[in-house]
Nucleic acid binder design. Structure first.
Length: 550
RNA sequence: GCGCCGGUAGCUCAGUGGAUAGAGCGUCGGCCUCCGGAGCCGAAGGUCGCAGGUUCGAAUCCUGUCCGGCGCGCCA
């Protein structure tokens, strides 16, 4: 339960009391509207504001102001609440008790890294599959967005109390592997790269590095040469991908190979299951899934007329394989170009008897890479693309993490390499890190003169507006985290972290921490330490370092 | 043509039915005898693509329309 949850419950109780007392009349059988609760922008509107009375007005057939007054009158005594007032056209404004607010510093500080965590009402087991870039070339910056979103989302979901499995799906199956092998062989022999082949400097590197025994085996069986060399090449590419992810600070619990879905019979069993419920049929020599039965535009092929499975076949097997591991929810983080496949996979899950809502795809919008106003093509096949390492060399991991996780993943973004380089020194991420370093510095200076944090009397001592404002921001952290988790979004976290850093700067400006007044200094040091701790928590959710000095 | 996602300050983006629409960057003007100036204060800058509709109230919901991206395969 976060502070916001507590207040919402208190409002609901007051509303129900008003109904029970007959002050508020709701016709039987009407469902009560949800209670909106937000932090108003204007201080004169209190610390929290609710529109509950205005929402209730139509069903209660009464003036919003009168309803608000009835709820305010019925509002039970809360240790955190100083006053509940009413403002036109019917807002319920809640003012927190300043001494209660300041008194929370000790608890926040004591909670440390666990502050704000574990608030999920019903913890679930959630599988997050992300990146899953094909092993046909190194990661490029287009993959970085999904990597950071998946990583931060996993951290956020874990933080609120879910059990998260991070997973990378490795497509080691099918014609793309052969095409990579043939491209490498073409490079070696100086012949033209096949039309569906891969270009780019990394293919040259692979050609140069191909070991003799692999090439000998390819020579020995020309029909199988592409597959043999491709198998070697994808392994090598995969090692490079793992190194890149390592550098990004992104780790996975499970690397799932597409081939195992076939080898272990997951695909076959899934198709049998669909067939048993008449969701599969044969036509034109192919095997089809009746996706139209669930609203899709057309039915989808599972096995082609040549007997080979489609990518969709693996998807079907994969859903059941994941769910068999006990996950309550599957989150797929896909590029926006995959949105066409969302419906069919969810349809298949439903057809197999799974809960459709438990299979969720988050489509990450495209990143357009631009240098000097000119777009840089990102296709592996075209050969020209920017590797992750190049970007990280130029802008740094922390700045890149901040850049990608601070934007809604539904928004397409332009990434100008020159601009990113130029702005990397002015990136807001440094502002947040700077606040953490500054807080650390104050604590060090305090220790030098024999002062330390003392939170016992903060409720009485911290009544300055800047102190109050800062603690209120600290109190917002659990809600910011909970909202991010609930919405499966990341950008709430950097937004919050920036505002906290900003509130800390204002406090630093207005309130000198190390003074002649020992009790006040120690209380302020407790506030500084609590702030430092919450800043570190926020940065940790983003996978960004919290430096003690810069 | 159909579908999905976008269109908010010069630029990059927040704002998932509420009070005078916000932030960063950029621009302009101030602030260093003081715990970290990677900082602080202030200013300029908006027909929320457009047009209807729903609502006490719309950037937000609905319909239409324009613009941009992506998709619409027995490829992955």
């Amino acid at each position: 339960m976060t502070l916001r949850d507590d207040l919402r419950q208190a409002i609901a109780d007051a509303r129900d009391r008003a109904i029970a007392d007959g002050v508020l009349v709701i016709p039987d059988g009407t469902t009560l509207p949800s209670i909106g609760l937000e932090r108003p922008a204007k201080p004169e509107h209190g610390d929290w504001a609710s529109n509950v009375a205005m929402q209730l007005a139509p069903v209660a057939r009464a003036a919003p102001m009168r309803i608000a007054e009835a709820i305010a009158a019925a509002f039970g005594s809360q240790p955190s609440v100083l006053a509940v007032s009413v403002a036109p056209p019917g807002f319920l404004n809640i003012r927190l008790d300043p001494s209660w607010v300041a008194g929370q510093v000790g608890a926040i500080r004591d909670a440390g890294p666990s502050y704000g965590r574990g608030t999920a009402a019903n913890p679930r087991r959630i599988n997050v599959e992300f990146v899953s870039a094909n092993p046909t070339g190194p990661l490029h910056v287009g993959n970085a967005r999904g990597a950071f979103v998946g990583d931060v989302l996993s951290r956020v979901l874990t933080a609120v109390g879910h059990e998260v499995g991070r997973e990378y799906y490795f497509n080691d199956f099918g014609t793309q592997v052969v095409n990579l092998g043939l491209s490498v062989l073409a490079r070696r022999s100086g012949t033209d790269i096949p039309e569906d082949g891969y270009r780019g400097a990394y293919v040259d590197d692979l050609a140069a590095a191909a070991p003799d025994d692999v090439l000998a085996r390819a020579d020995a069986s020309p029909d199988d040469a592409g597959r043999l060399v491709g198998a070697w090449a994808t392994e090598r590419v995969r090692a490079g991908i793992e190194d890149s992810l390592d550098r990004l600070g992104v780790r996975f619990d499970v690397w799932k190979e597409e081939s195992t879905l076939h080898d272990e019979g997951w695909v076959g069993r899934a198709v049998d299951r669909l067939r048993a419920s008449d969701h599969v049929y044969e036509a034109d020599g192919a095997t089809w899934f009746r996706s139209t039965a669930f609203g899709d535009d057309k039915d989808r092929v599972i096995f082609r007329s040549n007997g080979l499975p489609t990518y969709f076949a693996s998807d079907i097997g994969y859903v059941t394989e994941k769910l068999s591991r006990g996950f309550d929810e599957l989150i797929y983080i896909w590029g926006a170009d995959h949105h066409g496949t969302v419906a069919r996979v969810r349809n298949a899950a439903e057809a197999m008897g799974h809960d459709r809502a438990a299979v969720r795809m988050l489509l990450i919008a495209w990143v357009r890479f631009v240098r000097d106003g000119e777009e840089i093509p990102m296709s592996k096949r075209s050969g020209e693309f920017i590797t992750l390492d190049e970007v990280l060399d130029e802008v740094g991991v922390d700045a890149a993490r901040w850049f990608f996780s601070s934007r809604a993943f539904t928004t397409g973004i332009d990434f100008d390499l020159e601009l990113a380089k130029k702005q990397s020194n002015e990136n807001p991420v440094y502002y947040v890190q700077y606040a953490h370093a500054r807080a650390s510095s104050i604590l060090r200076n305090a220790a030098d003169v024999g002062l330390g944090p003392q939170a016992a009397d903060t409720g009485k001592l911290l009544d300055h507006p800047a102190e109050q404002e800062l603690v209120r921001h600290l109190l917002d952290f659990p809600d910011a985290l909970a909202i991010a988790a609930e919405r499966r979004e990341t950008h709430e976290v950097p937004r919050y972290a920036y505002e906290l850093a900003s509130a800390f700067s204002a406090f630093y400006r207005d309130c000198k921490v190390l003074t002649e007044d020992r009790p006040l200094s120690e209380a302020r040091l407790a506030l500084v330490d609590a702030t430092r701790s919450v800043l570190a928590n926020g940065l940790d959710l983003l996978g960004i370092s919290a430096p003690e000095t810069m």
